[in-house]
């Protein structure tokens, strides 16, 4: 346990040490946040509600999205795949303990750093300047915090699965690029999932893309219970999936060589 905590702390410190990247990231989030805010204000000029969301919901969505951007699409997205390709991943198999937990601990350390240094400041400043709908109670804020951490865990779990493609194909990037536009849209990073046509929305609501962005937005805007339950369920399912893939991949590596 101590080893995993040490990895978590090391990941946190490592990410926090990139000051320039942090400044650049905050600026980018602010810029796109302002652009999106303007777009949604224009949309809501003529009406009070779109697909059940009012302007406060929409603005909350915008700034949670900006806050979570670097957590979900982490700058180190391809790190695992590259380690697999270069053969450095083998080092993970040669250490005592559990490789999946080690990777998770280190990754979570880094995403927690992003949550603390980017998500929280971005949301706080936005909430001071704009009419966002954020929890007003300490309990509500704690639930939002938990939801953001769960989003970070699911983000690792999905990135782990994408990265694992490198065990089977050297062309893992093309594979991802092929599905990327669909993932981008369906995870709600273009417009809220609530705007989708009924059947598509129903489908997406049952996908592991919901915990990444829409669940924290829903926790913030009021529907905390079901959103958190969805996140926890996906963490459990992806946990099993990730471990199964790792077991298969290790088996393949050990039988066929790296």
């Amino acid at each position: 346990m101590r080893a995993y905590l040490a990895l978590l702390r090391a990941g946190f410190q490592r990410q926090t040490s990139y000051r320039l990247a942090l400044a650049a990231g905050l600026l980018t989030n602010a810029f796109f946040g302002v652009v999106r805010t303007a777009v949604f204000y224009a949309l809501y000029r003529e009406r009070d509600q779109v697909a059940g969301l009012d302007v406060a919901d929409a603005l909350t969505y915008v700034w949670v999205l900006e806050g979570l951007f670097a957590v979900v699409w982490a700058p180190w997205f391809w790190e695992l795949a590259e380690a697999i390709r270069s053969g450095e991943f083998v080092a993970e198999l040669l250490r005592p303990g559990d490789p999946y937990l080690r990777l998770l601990a280190f990754d979570l350390g880094r995403t927690l750093s992003v949550l603390v240094t980017r998500t929280v400041p971005t949301l706080t400043v936005a909430a001071l300047l704009l009419p966002l709908r954020l929890p007003a109670t300490l309990g509500g804020l704690a639930l939002l915090g938990a939801s953001l951490v769960l989003a970070a865990v699911v983000s690792f779990q999905l990135r782990f699965l994408f990265g694992s493609a490198a065990f089977w194909t050297p062309d893992y990037r093309s594979l991802f690029m092929l599905v990327f536009p669909v993932l981008w849209l369906l995870s709600g990073f273009v417009v809220p999932v609530d705007f989708f046509p009924g059947p598509l929305r129903a489908l997406v609501d049952w996908s592991p893309l919901i915990p990444l962005l829409m669940a924290p937005v829903r926790v913030a805007t009021g529907a905390a219970g079901p959103a958190l339950a969805t996140q926890v369920a996906w963490v459990a399912l992806l946990w099993l999936g990730g471990r199964a893939v790792l077991a298969l991949a290790s088996r393949r590596l050990v039988v066929h060589g790296g």
């Binding site: 040490a6 090391a10 410190q13 270069s86 083998v90 280190f106």
Partner: peptide, 17 residues
Amino acid sequence: QRTQLWWDLPLEESFEL
């Protein structure tokens, strides 16, 4: 030709890990 250390961490932290 392969590293087993943590690429971005100061050496000291790698040893600690």
